[in-house]
Amino acid sequence: MSTDENQQQPFENRTDLTGVEKLVDAIRSEIGKIIVGQHEMVDLLIAALLSSGHVLIEGVPGVAKTLTTKLLAQTIDSDFSRIQFTPDLMPADVTGTSVFNPKTSNFDFKQGPIFSNIVLIDEINRSPAKTQAALFEVMEERQVTVDGKTYLMDAPFMVVATQNPIEHEGTYRLPEAQLDRFLFRIDVPYPSLDEEVQILVGSHKRKNQLNIQDLEKVVTAEQIKAQQQVVAGIHVEPELMKYIAEIIQNTRNSSSVSIGASPRASVFVMKAAQALAAMNGRDFITPEDVKEVINPVLRHRITLTPEREMEGIKPDQVIQMILEKVEVPR
């Protein structure tokens, strides 16, 4: 067989990705009935769902951060809860508390709203560090410990948190340990002119009424768990593992960065790249997959030097400079 004939042979996956493709297409289609544009946010949310990750969404008010998360939850036949973080919210309001039962003379544990499959935490930076700390265990270990007893979360379990980057009054800086538990930080931009016109057209057709209950539940929790296993099996070449590790190592050695990314970042880059590869119909990752997920995985994990911040340099710019220094495997 000639070289030309070899090049024309269609690529065949070693892993059946039909389930992943159906899941992704179904969720995209349902969310697209209401959300105009914001394709990156939607795809990253799906990627996080497939890789068992949590997401922090940052954007100005009115760019559909909360709505998109609610729509995602609506497409899944599973439990959904929303927690509005406020300055007076206590840890027990999130995780739950033990309540005395006079009939049995025992304390019964009453689950908090964190016990759900998809959890939306609105304005996460409105609560103090004590309440933020209540999320550490559940986000990392998918369990809650109260009064010495451990309660496991049902799978799938995904936390999606939103925050407003503009308002600083009455807000608290998220602890680094908590930020590191988010797979992605998605920065949501304003819509383009054409997209904003489409938003107006859609709103006019719906007579300014929005009923997310009209969306169909197109995916079950069991299907998500099954496809999470498929994504976890996406092949990663040793050269690409080294490529990811070198990128993370360079965040620690960069003169523009005061605090680099942790080893958890390496794992999360690989997991995100696996999800992206599966969503694109491949059972192996490429350097392009790594490059596509690197900004949302790293932008909240590195701290720039004061000099860089004063210059107005953004984390994404530094990440791209680091990428250019790392040799891409061939």
Rank of each mutant, 00 (worst) to 15 (best):
M1T: 10
T3G: 00
Q8P: 01
Q9N: 07
Q9C: 02
P10V: 09
F11P: 00
E12R: 10
D16K: 09
L17M: 09
T18Q: 14
E21I: 08
V24M: 07
D25W: 01
I27R: 08
S29Q: 08
S29V: 00
G32R: 13
I35F: 12
Q38C: 06
M41Y: 05
L45G: 03
A47N: 05
A47Q: 10
L49E: 12
A64N: 07
T66V: 09
T68N: 11
A73R: 12
Q74P: 00
Q74A: 04
T75G: 03
D77H: 13
D79S: 15
P87G: 11
D88S: 04
A92R: 05
D93H: 13
V94E: 02
N106A: 12
N106E: 15
D108V: 10
I114M: 09
F115M: 09
F115L: 09
F115H: 11
N117W: 05
V119N: 02
P128K: 11
K130E: 13
R142A: 15
R142L: 14
V144A: 01
D147I: 05
T150Y: 00
L152T: 11
F157L: 11
M158A: 08
N164K: 08
N164R: 08
I166K: 00
G170Q: 01
T171Q: 07
L174W: 02
L174Q: 01
Q178D: 02
Q178P: 02
R185E: 10
P191E: 07
E195H: 03
L200K: 08
R206Q: 13
R206M: 10
K207M: 11
N208G: 00
N211K: 14
I212T: 09
I212H: 11
Q213R: 14
D214P: 00
T220E: 01
I224S: 05
V231L: 11
H235K: 11
E239A: 15
E239H: 07
R252L: 04
N253A: 08
S255M: 03
S255L: 07
G260D: 09
A261E: 08
V267C: 05
M270F: 00
K271L: 08
Q274S: 03
R282W: 03
D283Q: 02
T286A: 10
P287I: 12
E288C: 00
E292N: 05
I294H: 00
N295K: 13
V297A: 02
L304K: 06
E307I: 04
E307D: 13
R308I: 02
Q317C: 00
V318K: 02
V318A: 04
I319W: 11
Q320E: 15
M321C: 01
E324A: 14
R330N: 14
